[in-house]
Design a binder for these strands. Structure first.
Lengths: 144, 144
DNA sequence: ATTTGATAGTTACCTAAGCTAACTATTAGC
DNA sequence: GCTAATAGTTAGCTTAGGTAACTATCAAAT
């Protein structure tokens, strides 16, 4: 079998298993994957507009709107006023930030468990390769 | 940021981009990801029962039932009679197999494009690492 | 041989999370 | 100022996952 086939077969299986376990962790806190990915972004980037999130996560705007609405309803987000009144800029609220650090611990535990036995060098090398692959995919979408 | 966090952030982003492009390819043939993963399994394993597929893909039985039903309706699967009359063993029909080789070409093209510039050795090493990670996840689920 | 328990699959139903199409409200460019 | 483009929303569809409860068949123990 082609090494590319083996690669992606393993890649997909691993992703599905990972998503499964991640969901188990998140559900303990009443969260879902899509919500978590937004909180994660806001933890690393302070604030974001919906379009920014849509681009980053590579989903359409209505998908983001819905997830944001849910996070707002729970009270994990707050608005950041800006001068462009079309856009809606959000950041984590205090309770959102509090929850994030808590869940982050549990997710770190899961992730580090999965990576146990794999050296930091190998992790970084693999991350680098994945970035390269991601870049190949992005450049296919050029006509944005 | 922890290297595990960077790893999984990249991992998830890459997966989502990949799934997106894979879907684009599959849709040209009227297929979806879940259907494709079953055809892929049957291409590598000749035949399978629903439970076998559920275990491999790590989803529940009703999910498999539905996807199999769809593939049957399109005519890509046929039954393999066996002595245990509880189980339903399926394989690809002729038209399923024909479609598979066709789609396989397109998917190979996509996958090889994504992996371009990454040596076969690196691909294999990364596959090995992913297998190791997958194994960590599986062993967490021991009580099966 | 019969009963009991496990296993394979199905049915019905719920939910998350993606999508498109069509819309409003702003802003930017000419 | 008018027109284009951009940000976001609403409505509605679909895939694909999940549980709970069920039937049919088989295996094992008594």
């Amino acid at each position: 079998m082609k090494s590319s086939q083996e690669f992606f077969q393993q890649f997909v299986l691993l992703y599905r298993s990972f998503e499964h376990h991640l969901n188990d962790v998140l559900n303990d806190y009443g969260l879902y994957r899509a919500q978590w990915s937004i909180l994660h972004y806001l933890a690393k980037n302070e604030s974001a507009t919906l379009v920014e999130l849509a681009h980053y996560l590579r989903v359409e705007k209505p998908t983001i709107t819905r997830t944001i609405t849910r996070l707002e309803n729970i009270g994990y987000l707050s608005h950041v006023p800006g001068k462009d009144r079309r856009e809606k800029r959000v950041e984590m609220s205090e309770s959102g930030a509090t929850l994030y650090v808590e869940v982050r611990k549990a997710v770190d535990l899961l992730e580090e468990g999965i990576l146990s036995g794999i050296s930091v060098e190998q992790q970084q090398e693999t991350t680098r390769i994945m970035k390269q692959m991601h870049h190949h995919l992005i450049s296919k979408e050029q006509p944005l």
